[in-house]
Simulated assay, not measured.
Amino acid sequence: MHTLRGPRVLLALKTALAVSLAWGVAQRMPGTIDEYPYYAPLGALSAMYPTVLGSVRTGLQTVAGLALGILLAAGVLLVGSPNLVTIGLAVGIGVLLSGVRRLGAGAEYVPMAALFVLIVGGQDAGSYSLGYLVQMAVGVAIGLVVNVAVFPPLDFRTARLQLDRLQGVVVDYLGDVAGELASPGSTAGRDWAQRNHELARLTGEVREAVDASALSARGNPRVVLRRRARGTDPGYAALAQLERVVFHLRDLTDALRALYDADRHGWTVPGPVAAGLADAVEAGARCVRAWAHDEDTAAPAAEVRALLGRLYAGPVDPSEVQQRLVLAAGQDLQRLVDVLDPPAP
């Protein structure tokens, strides 16, 4: 039921209002312009976008695309009257021009405007072009005014929910890793590899949500009020930390996967080492959970460092590949914790 969510319902109501206002204004335009009132509602519709900046960009691109298409049709009319050849030529050139990236949403209007001027405008192409362009521009302007004046969309909640989701996944993942360490060799590494891919995909989705929230704030008058109340960071600060946490978590599990890869070697991780790593990873999960809940991370971070210190103090020989992997896993976990609780200089 995504279509019935609050922001979508609000956008639908605002679009209906903008189209109605555009239709009313279009019928009161001076001169021959009022002969083409149906284009004003279309302009209002094209300018309605979920974000203020998106509305401005889309509206301006639409008018620019129309103007370019009209100019193209005018150039064709200078060559000759509308016929099979000139109409096809205009549309072909319009399709080529629509490939200009800067036109954005207005790209599709280039060949369409040229076609309408040549076929619908016909012998009265000048008046038609003027009415077409002015009515569309009026509709776009009305759409922009409505979108800015009536509850301009500002959505930080979606980004916050996505960040919470990623934080929960990281905590659960660390808990699972600790459980697997308590029973060495139970996964053979394949599940961890898949979960690493899913973690990377989810991180990308969260960044998209935060980017969308930031976009909704650009040019939005509600940001001034929010800045005074709760700030305007859509979540980039928390996302930056989470991305670093995910990076070290993936490195940690890569080291553990290599350590427990039974297909490549016959290593056996000593019980005390596995148990020490499991306790440290579990403490790391508590550190992430505390950070996600805006609680003090100092205590769980100190516990992780103490557990790793005891692990390093044991009989670890860095010259052996197996023991280097143990050290690498511990270092990745410590870097993860350092992101959330930076050590004192």
Rank of each mutant, 00 (worst) to 15 (best):
T297M: 01
A193F: 14
V170R: 04
L215W: 09
P41I: 10
R195K: 12
N147W: 02
L181M: 07
A283W: 09
V117Q: 06
T15C: 14
A125T: 01
V19S: 04
L225K: 15
V245C: 08
E282R: 11
E282S: 14
H265P: 01
V177W: 01
I93C: 12
L336V: 01
S186N: 09
S319F: 03
R8K: 05
V110K: 02
V210M: 12
A141H: 04
V273S: 14
V120K: 11
D191E: 15
T15Y: 11
P50G: 11
P221D: 11
A274Q: 06
V145A: 12
Q167I: 00
D124T: 15
L307T: 05
V146T: 06
V79K: 08
L199C: 08
P300D: 10
E320L: 15
T86D: 08
G235M: 05
D176T: 15
A159D: 03
R228T: 08
D34K: 15
T187I: 02
G276L: 05
R324M: 14
R227W: 10
D279Q: 13
L225E: 13
R289Q: 09
S20F: 15
T51Y: 10
A64F: 12
S216Y: 10
D261G: 12
G106I: 11
A212M: 00
V171P: 03
L256D: 03
P41Q: 01
V120Q: 11
D279W: 03
L4R: 11
T62D: 01
Y260H: 12
R230D: 08
F156N: 09
V85A: 12
S127E: 13
R230F: 15
E282P: 02
R218N: 01
E35P: 00
T62W: 03
V150T: 02
G309D: 10
V140W: 08
G88H: 13
L249V: 04
D251G: 15
L249A: 10
E180A: 10
L10E: 07
E108K: 14
E320D: 11
P300W: 04
A90S: 13
V321L: 15
A301M: 02
L325K: 13
V171I: 13
W267S: 10
G6W: 12
P184T: 03
R335F: 08
V169F: 07
G80C: 05
R227G: 09
G219Q: 10
L311K: 08
A125D: 09
V169H: 03
G43E: 06
L340G: 12
P318M: 07
R8Y: 01
R257Q: 13
D211R: 13
L71W: 05
W192E: 08
I70F: 06
L42R: 07
H197E: 07
Y38E: 00
L60W: 14
Q27W: 02
A212P: 06
V52K: 13
E205V: 06
A280R: 14
N83T: 05
Y312E: 07
V85T: 06
G99C: 01
P37T: 10
A344P: 06
W192L: 03
G75I: 01
H2D: 09
Y36N: 02
V9Q: 06
A275V: 09
